[in-house]
Amino acid sequence: MPFAAAGLGQQFLDSFTFMGNNTSHLLHDTLATIALSGAALGVALAVTLPFAVWLGHLHRGSGMAIRIANLGRALPELGLIAIFLAILGIGFLNVMVALVIVGIPPILANTFTAVDGVDPDVVDAARGMGMSELWIVFKIELPLALPLMFAGIRTSALFVIGASPLAAIAGGGGLGEIIVNQASYGFDGVLAAAIWVAALALLVQALLALLQRAITPEGLKAQARARGEKVVVGISDAERAMEATPSHA
């Protein structure tokens, strides 16, 4: 076993040597991971957003939205991939379906909660002034729901990127391919890829946090300041929105 053979520092040194020698390979796999995760996130958004916004706008199906979200979060990523290995076999489709399913719950729960929770008096005023329902959704509810919705998207990205290396066991490619293939790459390769995956996940989260700050409407920031609350909600708040009610009990 590698850790027995070399000292602690040596193992990390080796992994950095691996990075130096295989930079283009790692970059290539990183791009593949980004493409895979991005595509899965995109599909999850396209499938979930309209549905969740619509439910939230109508204030309907809160039980269902939260139940789907909770059901989703009880699904182990590895187990999902395994089940789809049984159903769809090895390949891109399997991985894609599994990652999309992983990505949906936070988007669903947060988008629903955010739109459903928009101040009803604000919506009443909008309607009373003669805004059409579509206008209310796009000009009032979505801007006001944006921070919490975006927190859900961040969480979803976190889940998807977190699961993407696992997808390698089903032929998903990317950096996970190296991590699960110690026989070919050695432990220095595994460690190098692991460090890159971790860095990628952290980088993406940092960028999304900046983006979230940028797209949060100024008026909401002013409101939060006036109330002494924080403006930008983080991944942990998104997790709170997903917390289970004892609905299935």
Partner: peptide, 26 residues
């Protein structure tokens, strides 16, 4: 505290397991 725990939470599980291996083994 929230920052550090968010940091840990963000690292993909497979990566974190492997990164810990040099410290605490399999």
């Amino acid at each position: 505290i929230a920052g550090i725990s968010s940091f840990l939470y963000t690292i993909p599980s497979l990566a974190l397991f492997q990164i810990l291996v040099p410290f605490t083994g399999l």
